Computed example of a mutant assay.
Amino acid sequence: MNAAAPVDDTRAAARVRLRPTMSSDIEFVLSLEQDPANLPFITPWERTQHEAAIRFPDFRHFIVEGGPGLDAVGFVILIGCRSQHQSLELKRMVVRSKGEGFGRAALRTVKRVAFDSLGAHRLWLDVKSHNTRAKALYDSEGFVVEGVLRESVRTSDGFVSMVVMSMLQDEFAARRSQSLELVA
C-alpha cells in the first residue's frame, strides 16, 4: 500500500481529496471501470493489476473523495513515480458524477501531487480521440498535445487513436503564478 497521506483541497465548492487506495476499495474501482458510461473511454484493468498498483512503489493509486461528506467519487492512477526521468504518467482518472467539478478538482490536485510532492518534470497522459469531454478538460487545464498514436488501441468496434498530452513543471508554475491552479 502507498504510504502517502491524503491530499486535501478544501478551497472550492467541488471539495476533493485524494487518499491512497486500499484493498477494500478495489470493488468500487472495478465498478467504475465497468460502468457503461466509462467503458468507451478506458481500457479496464483486471483486479490483479489494481492490487499490484496499490503495492508497487512506482505507482500511486488514489481514491478521489469529494463533496460535503468526502464520499468516494472516483479514482486516479499515476505511474512513473520513481522515474529517473521525472516523467509521470496519469494512467487513469475516472469520476462517477460527471459535470459536478470533481474531475477538474481531482486533476488540479493530481498536478500538485505530481509536481510538488513527487518532483515531476513532466506529467503526461493519453486520451482516446473520441473522448472529447476529457480532451477538453485537459486542454483547458494547460496540457499540450504532443501527438497522436494512430489506431493504437483495439476495441470491439475496431481501432482507436490516442492523443498524447503533457504538461511540464515550468508550465505548471506559470499557471500557478497566474492563479490558474486554484481548485475550481
Results as ranks from 00 to 15, higher is better:
residue 130 H to F: 08
residue 47 R to M: 01
residue 27 E to G: 03
residue 181 E to I: 00
residue 7 V to R: 13
residue 53 A to C: 10
residue 143 F to W: 10
residue 124 W to A: 03
residue 17 R to A: 15
residue 172 F to P: 02
residue 36 P to I: 09
residue 2 N to P: 08
residue 80 G to W: 11
residue 167 M to N: 05
residue 12 A to L: 05
residue 10 T to N: 12
residue 11 R to G: 13
residue 150 R to H: 11
residue 98 K to R: 15
residue 13 A to C: 03
residue 71 D to R: 15
residue 167 M to C: 03
residue 131 N to H: 13
residue 115 F to A: 11
residue 101 G to A: 14
residue 39 L to C: 01
residue 162 M to D: 04
residue 92 R to Q: 14
residue 146 E to W: 00
residue 27 E to H: 04
residue 18 L to T: 04
residue 75 F to M: 09
residue 74 G to D: 04
residue 93 M to V: 12
residue 158 G to F: 07
residue 136 A to P: 02
residue 136 A to V: 01
residue 50 H to W: 08
residue 19 R to T: 07
residue 71 D to S: 15
residue 121 H to W: 10
residue 162 M to H: 00
residue 59 F to L: 01
residue 89 E to L: 13
residue 106 A to P: 06
residue 34 Q to K: 05
residue 102 F to N: 08
residue 38 N to T: 10
residue 93 M to W: 06
residue 110 V to P: 09
residue 166 S to W: 08
residue 78 L to V: 05
residue 163 V to D: 03
residue 115 F to K: 09
residue 94 V to L: 13
residue 55 R to H: 08
residue 24 S to Q: 08
residue 84 Q to V: 14
residue 132 T to K: 12
residue 148 V to Y: 06
residue 111 K to A: 13
residue 152 S to H: 10
residue 78 L to H: 04
residue 130 H to L: 09
residue 64 V to N: 05
residue 106 A to E: 01
residue 128 K to Q: 11
residue 26 I to C: 08
